[in-house]
Design a protein around this nucleic acid. Structure first.
Lengths: 197, 197
DNA sequence: CACAATACTGACTGAACGTTCGGTATAGAT
DNA sequence: ATCTATACCGAACGTTCAGTCAGTATTGTG
């Protein structure tokens, strides 16, 4: 890799970092390309040289983030023995991730906005499916080991995803320390329910 | 009420109905005032005569809808004896409500968009608090009656809200018949958990 | 040095959109 | 009949913003 390619890569990274900060702070729609220009010192044209579109730039960030999350998890998963422990650990990671990397807010503002190219739609679906598969695998593990009651892991995966998604949403209007509590409570309820036996 | 006032009220209603249909169909941002003009035959100016702003119009619809929901619930609550039954009934109502009145989609697109006037923000908070209070009351009822385990109804209310919110979100990429199943599953998990006792 | 190829610039375009405002029509009051 | 308040119209305005493009600078290559 020569000088030029290196420089180019650094520029791209610089744009990505600045854009991420802005999206996190202001949300997707409210962040204009002009804002990113202001934050990077790069020109508008240059941003479009490195990224196909605003959408493309955002998608890039999302995927980068998802990828990082996955890596983190793979590195720490072995620390937990039971599926129950793993569930709490996932919740913990999601809770702190939402605090440190709250791209999530911008993410679902983005995903909700009507104008979705077919490419975006398919990537959304892909990511969604990945999350559900992750949940399902975890739950199936718990069922097989006898920790969890026998049940349809696929359907439960959807419920779990709903819980995490909802917790993420509600946490936005919560004090930071309440967020962790909410995620923990959510997992506890998911495990034991509220009903008297 | 004279002829003029009556006419005026009908016009306002007509605008509201058309706008609701459009918001439901296309979402908040994607629905332009021009669209509403097209759908009503009323002029742009007239819309602004009856409603302060696009935001104001949408807020009006949301509150109308919330109010209707509350009425419906109050009318049917007495049909259910146990809190458990009530919970399933709420889930049922939310599930079908999402199908029949999917203003929800537009609603949280709206609520997520960065540009929130302080008035909007306070109304959001108000509605949110109302939902939590509703949940809390229901859960406290169940705890007091001995149906549910002793616990912090306030914290559980947040968890329940997260579940409903998440279910609502996920249901959008689900077949209609799966929606009801998801809501039911969610309540079942909320009640009994997944863990083996 | 000449010649690309790559990296970058920023003025400009064009369209979308919410809101305003000067004006008109109509119904009720005096 | 005159007046006034309310209801309604729609062209125009101002702003925002993603994306383009013709051109310039910089770096690598033969």
């Amino acid at each position: 890799m020569n000088q030029k390619q290196l420089q180019s890569e650094q520029t791209k990274k610089k744009i990505a970092v600045a854009a991420r900060a802005l999206f996190v702070q202001k949300g997707y729609k409210a962040t204009s390309i002009e804002d990113i220009v202001g934050a990077t010192g790069s020109s508008k044209g240059n941003i479009y040289y490195h990224f196909k579109s605003k959408e493309g730039l955002f998608l890039f960030l999302i995927e980068e983030w998802d990828h990082e999350w996955e890596l983190n998890w793979k590195q720490s998963e072995h620390l937990y023995n039971t599926t129950t422990e793993k569930l709490y650990a996932v919740a913990e990671q999601l809770a702190t991730d939402d605090l440190n990397h709250p791209l999530t807010k911008a993410a679902d503002e983005f995903f909700h906005n009507e104008e979705k190219t077919s490419e975006v739609e398919s990537r959304m679906a892909e990511m969604n499916a990945k999350h559900l598969a992750f949940n399902q695998k975890l739950l199936q593990e718990g069922i097989d080991s006898g920790e969890f009651k026998p049940g349809d892991a696929e359907r439960l995966a959807v419920v779990l995803e709903a819980i995490f998604f909802g917790a993420n949403h509600l946490s936005r209007s919560l004090a930071p320390d309440k967020t962790t509590i909410l995620y923990r409570d959510a997992v506890t309820v998911f495990l034991d329910g509220v009903a008297e036996e």
